[in-house]
């Protein structure tokens, strides 16, 4: 079959970007742990648990509790039952995406488990938007979660081990966020997405993931701007996922190298979520980091009309402890999503 006989993909903008028509964040909910609740964004979250274990016997069960609470809260806010939802798209950091799969078990909604590490929420937003815009769904719930203790267990050390944290270390956010994507409603619209490529600049220090992820975020940002012909001035805010203080510094350098000055337009969820007094190292991380900050603070400030057009770029490091101990470098990804009022 020659290329000429295939109808061109009409919803693409430039080489990589997809134009999304009529998809809204109709409802959203965030549930976080006490540390996140005590941070600068505490008042923006829907629910702050007093116990990071949420009275569950294991950290894995606790993480599931957070995600289930978030999904239930979205359903309740929207006044919908699970059988009125067409898809549940969710992901997390644990092996085999167990938090999301086990949570999906409780709702009976057709489900896809996603893994893009801490950029998972970007993948969920992208795929959810595409399914609705393509006419395959009316309502989709997307979610993502992470938990400090379950992530430490999977990626790092025992909780009570005498480890001295480095300045570039990040703190995994305990919490979950869920959102209802729909054609109707009054929430912010998703108007464009630029899916990420896997980018690896050859860094292997797992104590500095921000610097490893920054090139992926820059790559996606540059491709997005080139596809759309837009400039930084077209956005009120460009918010990255969990580059943290160190990664943000490197992200700005990469942008500057490409002739783009980010200035005050750029913020990072990992920097926003904790105060310096909370000693989070370079900032927050984890799949819940970008999810809970975007779904609470960022989108609320959009509804307050402080921001009218936001480019969100959740970032993720796609390594695991095995590849790290085998000396491999860290492949990273970042998806860009445009929110508009």
């Amino acid at each position: 079959m020659s290329a000429a006989t295939v109808a061109p993909a009409t919803k693409r903008v430039g080489k990589y970007t997809l134009a999304i028509d009529q998809v809204r964040i109709a409802q959203r909910a965030t549930v976080v742990g006490p540390r996140e609740g005590a941070g600068p964004l505490g008042k923006w979250f829907d629910q702050v648990e007093q116990d990071h274990m949420a009275e569950q016997p294991t950290p894995e069960k606790a993480e599931r509790y957070f995600l289930k609470q978030a999904v239930q809260l979205v359903l309740k806010k929207a006044g919908l039952s699970p059988d009125e939802i067409d898809f549940f798209l969710s992901g997390d950091l644990l092996n085999q995406v167990i938090t999301s799969s086990f949570t999906a078990r409780e709702f009976g909604i057709p489900f896809f488990g996603l893994f893009n590490a801490c950029a998972t929420f970007g993948a969920a937003l992208t795929l959810g938007s595409v399914l609705i815009d393509g006419g395959y769904a009316n309502r989709i719930i997307i979610g993502a979660s992470s938990h400090y203790q379950s992530a430490e267990r999977q990626y790092r050390y025992p909780i009570e081990l005498n480890v001295q944290r480095k300045a570039t270390n990040q703190w995994t956010v305990t919490g979950a966020g869920a959102a209802l994507l729909a054609r109707d409603g009054s929430g912010p619209r998703i108007t464009m997405v630029t899916p990420g490529r896997v980018v690896d600049y050859g860094l292997s220090d797992t104590n500095d993931m921000g610097s490893a992820m920054a090139p992926a975020a820059a790559d996606t940002l540059l491709r997005h701007l080139s596809d759309t012909g837009r400039s930084i001035g077209d956005y009120d805010l460009i918010v990255t996922g969990d580059l943290s203080a160190q990664g943000s510094k490197m992200f700005r350098l990469l942008a500057k190298d490409a002739g783009i000055t980010l200035g005050n337009t750029h913020q990072d969820c990992g920097v926003l979520i904790y105060s310096q007094e909370q000693q989070p190292g370079a900032g927050g991380s984890g799949a819940a980091c970008s999810t809970t900050v975007i779904l609470s603070y960022i989108l609320s400030e959009m509804e307050n009309t402080r921001y009218r057009r936001v480019l969100a770029i959740p970032t993720g490091a796609l390594h695991n402890p095995l590849t790290a101990s085998q000396g491999e470098t860290i492949p990273c990804i970042a998806h860009a999503v445009v929110f508009e009022l």
Binding site: T168, Y201, G202, P215, Q246, M250, L254
Partner: peptide, 22 residues
């Protein structure tokens, strides 16, 4: 930016550890 140049920059811009204090 060339990855090699970037890795160099990461090293240059890494926060300086406070060796005396530690």
């Amino acid at each position: 930016m060339d990855p090699k140049r970037y890795r160099q920059l990461v090293q240059e811009r890494a926060p300086k550890p406070n060796v005396v204090r530690d």
